[in-house]
Design a protein around this nucleic acid. Structure first.
Lengths: 337, 337
DNA sequence: ATGAAAGCGCTAACAG
DNA sequence: CTGTTAGCGCTTTCAT
């Protein structure tokens, strides 16, 4: 076994150049002859040398790392994180990699142990926070801590200049247009609209505007109770069907609610999509296997990841705040008439 | 703004102690008076001081970080990673956090850009690799690269001493026992059994043993073609139902296959679970919303995460190779008779 | 229990 | 284009 780590000095000696030349060559500095670089790389390869990230980071002051925090529901382990946030996590890590950044990931949900100070501690160059708006304690803590360095946020129940969101209004318009084109006429909205759910409020506006434009009746948002969206969607449908004149379609504020709605509708024997249309929002993978498969509005995850990451990697760029969405046709809305 | 970073020297001065005392106090060294520690902590708090991870890591040689690589299917972005691996990723990060480790996460799928050398580069103290056995190129690359440092693996299609797996045999026994107890008698197995799928082979053995023990007929494994397990499960059912004497239940080698099977069965008008039982393996979240909801064998994700992480954090411990599983009753198997 | 001093391996400023 | 030099901020002996 080698007694000590191979350093850039060893490579320098083997290649017959100075240590700083090794550093420059391996860092891809343009002011190095290709011939020298080749010699250095060859020497590095034979010696099995790798730049020590610890030393490089100390000296340069940079980390090349992004801290990514996924906020979950209090009391639930990371295994129960929504598929939406997993997908967003994946595309964020991919976008970070595109910019040459690594991703330091943590799942946080419990009050008293939140930690956002990655930049101050020299562990990352910036922070991306994503997760459920339901965990107020987490978002409040983020607001109070005011971590150093650039921050980008998805899912927070507050408005500041760091959030990135789906084009909720436009998505809602697409969703409701789709229902209208299928001939549904009494279209409800499933989801609590209040200051804690700015994304739902935006979707409700798109819903309302579209119905008004078509001269169709607009309902108040039907509140979805509890933090468990699926259960909330189930209950909401029960209440909805008990009404004097129930709707013949719903736009659910998100896919979890829609999945719950689908379950309840099936149990009540309502035929979807023939007699009742359902459309969701989020593009959840679970919607592929529901009964029927869930038609939904999906944000462009790759763009979402890029938008979050670019706030940190390209701080001079004009930040993207809205991510485009598209309609995913599955089976919970009947064909256009 | 402060002109330069607050260092341990600043804290030392403010607290009236030496710099090394600051280091010891904040690192929790036992050889420091509680009184001194309190003074140091107070000073650090007022100055807004945080230990610089870059410097600490360079000096100590440790990183306090685990590299976690999620291997995906070639050509697919991280958004399409199986929910199983997302859940395992989450519980691995949680287990790492329990041991005081952070998680450097990357999603890798493309040949030519695999990277496992986190330990050699001083970016992590160990490596956890998880993902689909289908990406041969990735696993071969891992084998060839032979990265430095401790490694733990989930999902690899090879046998060496680094893997951790579910108790596949025992889980298969539980699954088939459940089908037998419900009165199904011609029980098939859905899944390709070969050297590329050691976990499927183990599940098939549990299937076969259980049927033999009950004196029931054993089928050969029904091959599931292609890398898309859901499509493969659909096709397999089509072939199965075309047989002279089709089975009245299947144990699917995993939930993705089972979900495809459920779809095909529904399309063919076969009533599940009344006339046909289906049970899967993995505990996929999507199975909650399938039609009917999928009964399955779920590994203990928290234990799985701990087993992977402990190979790196507690290298002296006897490594856990098998993770316990449990039966999740949903709706694709009828009640026991 | 605390202080003094050394140095981890590298990048970057400055010469040449 | 390449070499020389000086630290980055901390942990860890070694003293006391």
């Amino acid at each position: 076994m080698r007694r000590t780590r191979v350093t850039s000095f060893d490579v320098a000696e083997a290649a017959g150049v100075s240590q700083s030349t090794v550093s420059r060559a391996l860092a891809g500095s343009p002011s190095i002859t290709e011939e020298t670089r080749a010699r250095v790389e060859a020497a590095a390869a034979t010696l099995g040398y790798h730049v020590d990230a610890r030393a490089a980071r100390l000296r340069s002051g940079r980390t090349g790392t992004l801290a990514v925090v996924v906020v979950g529901r209090a009391g639930f382990d990371p295994t129960r994180v929504s598929g939406f946030h997993y997908a967003l996590l994946g595309s964020t890590c991919a976008a970070a990699a595109e910019c040459g950044y690594q991703s330091l990931v943590s799942f946080q949900s419990e009050q008293g142990s939140f930690s956002w100070n990655y930049v101050a501690q020299g562990q990352a160059d910036g922070l991306v926070v994503m997760g459920t708006s339901v965990n107020r304690a987490a978002w409040n803590d983020l607001l109070e801590t005011a971590p150093e360095g650039p921050v980008a946020v998805w899912g927070a129940p507050f408005d500041d200049d760091r959030w990135v969101r789906a084009s909720n209004f436009e998505g809602a318009v697409m969703a409701v247009e789709r229902l209208v084109s299928a001939g549904y006429r009494r279209i409800g909205f499933l989801g609590t609209v209040d200051s804690e759910h700015p994304q739902f409020a935006e979707r409700y506006e798109g819903y309302r505007d579209t119905l008004v434009r078509h001269g169709l009746p607009v309902s108040d948002p039907l509140e979805v109770l509890g933090d468990d969206r699926v259960a909330g969607g189930r209950d909401a449908i029960a209440r909805l069907l008990a009404a004097k004149q129930p709707p013949d379609a719903v736009f659910a504020a998100n896919d979890a609610i829609a999945l719950g709605a689908l379950e309840a509708l099936d149990r009540e024997g309502v035929r979807v999509p023939e007699d009742f249309g359902v459309i969701g929002f989020d593009g959840l993978a679970a919607g592929v296997h529901s009964h029927p498969p869930l038609t939904t509005i999906e944000p462009d995850f790759a763009e979402a990841g890029r938008a979050l990451v670019s706030r940190i990697c390209d701080p001079d760029e004009e930040p993207t705040r809205r991510v485009p969405v598209r309609l995913i046709e599955r089976g919970s809305v009947r064909a256009p008439r």
